[in-house]
């Protein structure tokens, strides 16, 4: 798994609430049997017309905005358990997603792939959107070690929570399977005791 420690980047703002996994990656693109290549179809129906022409008014098609951080409205990633959503976001070049609220399964999937979901307060989220509104190149600093996110221009900063175990997984680039495989003996003993 990809390691994550610190990141400074401009952001791609998507100020919409309840963005569900069907928008992130529509079902018709779930037919691939590998993890790669989903980025092309990230937000497919918001990003492209039916004839594959990019929609000019969608933020990802606007060259003014770029960066490794996606910032979105509340309840991001609701809907299906498809991990393809996390893969697509990552494959499109993002390393972190910021929202004021994440759906559970999405959050878990993101963490399992080294994509950092950062939950901030409603106020701080508004501050980010405002900063980007005023200056599309506004950058954020994400510091996983210290669990903070900072709007560089204004200096506004907020700390975020993350499960300590998950944090160490991200920093060291190892995943749950690496961890749990070491416990096989314990699992067998549990089975026998039932």
């Amino acid at each position: 798994m990809k390691k994550f420690t610190k990141l400074t980047s401009a952001v791609v703002p998507l100020n919409i609430e309840n963005i569900d996994t069907d928008q992130i990656i529509p079902a018709r693109f779930l037919k691939a049997t590998t993890r790669e290549g989903f980025g092309e179809n990230l937000f497919r129906d918001w990003r492209y017309e039916n004839d594959n022409q990019p929609k000019a008014d969608f933020v990802m098609n606007n060259p003014t905005y770029s960066g490794q951080v996606l910032v979105a409205g509340k309840n991001f990633g609701c809907g299906s358990s498809r991990e393809h959503a996390a893969w697509a976001i990552q494959d499109a070049g993002f390393d972190a997603v910021i929202s004021s609220f994440f759906a559970d399964i999405f959050k878990g999937n993101a963490l399992n792939n080294g994509l950092l979901p950062i939950q901030v307060s409603e106020e701080f989220l508004s501050q980010i959107f405002q900063a980007v509104d005023q200056n599309p190149k506004s950058a954020l600093e994400v510091d996983l070690e210290n669990q903070t996110v900072t709007i560089i221009e204004t200096g506004a900063t907020e700390s975020f929570e993350i499960n300590p175990y998950k944090k160490s997984c991200l920093i060291n680039g190892y995943d749950d399977i690496d961890f749990i495989l070491n416990q096989k003996q314990l699992i067998k003993e549990f089975e026998q005791a039932r």
Partner: peptide
């Protein structure tokens, strides 16, 4: 409950899941 594909792999490998 529903899980993502990394967790499907986890259950394949260990019949367990890390869950809070």
């Amino acid at each position: 409950f529903g899980i993502g594909t990394s967790q499907v792999e986890q259950v394949f490998a260990t019949q367990c899941l890390l869950q809070s």
